[in-house]
């Protein structure tokens, strides 16, 4: 192949150019958890106790801006009194290397069962949240987060 006179090398070395042009799409795949792994963790915690969908507002972005820092806000509806409050909240993800993300322990002094954090997501996946009430009842919620390669907008 000939070189041109334009001052631009037609064949610039590819070696060092193998950078993250489309990082997320081209990253090697890790061994990742799945739905079954999340179910197994839940079984360890609560055996086969029934769960009801609801009472939890699981706020995650529909599309992650950065898979390394994805905002996660959990808000569980509860009067947060000594007699009736949220004891624990567990959050899982079905597409990360490990299914667990976090566990929160709340008390009536928390005032409300609401907390925000930021998490890493390896790929598009579903976030699962389970809340345990002071009377032992369990509630659950799910939300999907899309992790995209981006680019080409506007």
């Amino acid at each position: 192949m000939t070189m041109t006179s334009a001052g631009i090398t037609r064949r610039q070395a590819i070696g060092s150019a193998a950078i993250a042009v489309f990082a997320a799409a081209l990253a090697p795949r890790l061994a990742l958890a799945d739905e079954a792994a999340v179910a197994a963790e839940l079984k360890k915690l609560y055996a086969d106790k029934p769960m009801t969908e609801g009472r939890i507002k699981l706020d995650v972005p529909q599309i992650a801006e950065n898979g390394l820092v994805v905002p996660l806000n959990v808000d569980v509806e509860s009067p947060m009194t000594a007699a009736d409050h949220v004891k624990a909240v567990h959050v899982f993800a079905d597409g990360n290397p490990l299914p667990q993300i976090l566990t929160y322990r709340f008390t009536p002094e928390s005032g409300k069962a609401s907390a925000s954090i930021r998490m890493r997501l390896a790929q598009t996946q579903t976030i699962v949240c389970v809340a345990e009430m002071s009377d032992g009842k369990l509630y659950s919620a799910k939300a999907g987060v899309k992790v995209t390669i981006g680019g080409c907008g506007g």
């Binding site: 290397p97 993300i101 976090l102 008390t107 954090i117 930021r118 890493r120």
Partner: peptide, 12 residues
């Protein structure tokens, strides 16, 4: 103690 959290490696 009024709030506690356990974090796993997926926390940023």
């Amino acid at each position: 103690v009024f709030f506690a959290a356990t974090w796993y490696p997926s926390v940023s």
